[in-house]
């Protein structure tokens, strides 16, 4: 398989100047073509020069504490993200470092207690106070107070 000038040029641009690292299916053809053509070797030299120039591109290392800053910011972000009652309890558990199952158990217990409270409240009819009774009690109270005064 022979590689023509145009193909070689394109492969240089796409895969770089190290022909030994080109994809297997074109590597041998590339190496062979280069051996037999001074024109291709000139192209290769041009590509090598471009790559050398590109590698001199300015680069600044990140701050050494970048990771820590991200982690620190993530804690406050999550705090802000939690809203409402469930958010409050999640936050509570989060602050104490409790695992997720503890949060679930706590939430379920809370809901059960609330349901039980409502059930008892609605079921206990004898404990309800009628308006009439309330008025009687009040009158008795006022009358009693009047007696005292």
């Amino acid at each position: 398989m022979t590689m023509k000038l145009k193909q070689f040029k394109e492969n240089l641009l796409v895969y770089g100047s190290n022909v030994h690292e080109w994809p297997e299916d074109i590597r041998q053809a590339g190496l062979k073509a280069m051996e037999t053509s001074s024109e291709l070797r000139t192209l290769l030299a041009e590509e090598e020069r471009l790559e050398r120039v590109l590698k001199t591109r300015k680069y600044e290392e990140p701050s050494s504490d970048l990771g820590e800053r991200i982690l620190s910011a993530s804690l406050s972000r999550r705090k802000r993200g939690r809203r409402g009652l469930s958010g409050f309890f999640s936050e509570l558990v989060w602050e104490f470092g409790l695992p997720k199952p503890a949060l679930t158990a706590f939430s379920v217990s809370l809901v059960l207690v609330l349901i039980l409270g409502f059930a008892i409240g609605f079921a206990d009819l004898t404990g309800s106070v009628s308006t009439e009774g309330s008025q009687t009690d009040l009158q008795e109270f006022l009358y009693y107070e009047g007696e005292v005064l």
């Binding site: 970048l66 800053r69 910011a73 993530s74």
Partner: peptide, 17 residues
């Protein structure tokens, strides 16, 4: 540099949220 750090931080925070 500063802007690059901000962009990376923002991307990670979005992942966290």
């Amino acid at each position: 540099k500063d802007e690059a750090e901000d962009m990376v931080q923002e991307a990670f925070l979005r992942l966290w949220e």
